[in-house]
């Protein structure tokens, strides 16, 4: 069974800086793959390469068997990959419903009529818990809610693969739990495959089927949470020793 996303020996140089070197991993349909690593390890860069914001310096990225290297970011989204941004980028002057509704009109969905898109948008807003605020402007939200909106917007595009970039950063423990629950609900409802970058390790271990650990642009370990948590290399460079 071919993986949904196949990242093959991908490298990325920025001038003289090697952000990613020879990184390979794959993601099967329906999986949740967590990505971890210290700041600067290359996680967001990896996302940017997959989503088409940057072009890899080397290697191949296959989505459902098709290479997406060199495609524009919007074309890649239409193919079925969506992402959130590490620093949220809301449509400030648009309402929550409009933000999600517009996403439903574009992206990977087969062209939906206006009312269908509105219904879908309303449903997604409901799952993320923002239904009551749907007519408020995005700029008025708290950070936690803006992160939920960002997730809702990404899902609304009808993507099969959703990449979440530190959606829990800055959230209180209770908000983290809520976000985890939202992610699970959305995954189940829309049959999603997810790659998730997080520093909140407990949450990541909790929700992921497998974990990829990056360090200085290279893969250090790939495996199930238990395996990775005991891997000596991982303990050495990222997790620290712990009983």
């Amino acid at each position: 069974m071919r993986p949904l996303l196949d990242v093959q020996r991908v490298s990325k140089m920025f001038g003289g800086l090697q952000a990613l070197q020879d990184v390979s991993f794959d993601v099967s349909a329906g999986e949740v793959v967590g990505m971890m690593g210290a700041n600067g390890a290359g996680k967001t860069t990896m996302f940017n390469l997959i989503s088409g914001n940057f072009k890899p310096s080397g290697g191949q990225i296959l989505f459902d068997g098709q290479s997406v290297v060199g495609m524009s970011a919007d074309r890649i989204c239409r193919m079925g990959i969506a992402r959130t941004f590490q620093i949220v980028r809301p449509f400030n002057e648009l309402t929550l419903l409009d933000s999600v509704f517009i996403a439903a009109q574009f992206g990977a969905r087969t062209r939906k009529g206006r009312s269908q898109a509105q219904v879908l948008a309303a449903e997604i807003l409901d799952i993320v818990g923002l239904a009551e605020r749907k007519d408020e402007l995005a700029a008025t939200l708290t950070l936690a809610d803006q992160k939920r909106l960002e997730v809702a917007r990404a899902i609304s595009t009808g993507a099969r693969l959703v990449m979440l970039d530190e959606v829990m950063a800055g959230l209180t423990p209770r908000e983290v739990t809520e976000m985890l629950s939202i992610i699970r609900d959305l995954k189940a409802r829309f049959d999603l495959t997810i790659i998730i970058i997080e520093h909140v390790i407990s949450a990541l271990m909790n929700v992921s089927d497998r974990i990829v650990i990056l360090h200085h642009g290279e893969t250090v370990a790939i495996g199930s949470p238990d395996v990775v948590a005991r891997d000596p290399r991982v303990l050495a460079c990222y997790l620290g020793t712990k009983s």
Partner: peptide
């Protein structure tokens, strides 16, 4: 129209608009 919605999104944040599949160019 869908086109108009795309333009509004472009105005708000061009990169984010692109990330939801709007053909910005």
């Amino acid at each position: 129209t869908r086109f108009g919605h795309g333009l509004l999104a472009i105005r708000e944040d061009e990169e984010a608009a692109q990330s939801i599949g709007i053909p910005i160019v």
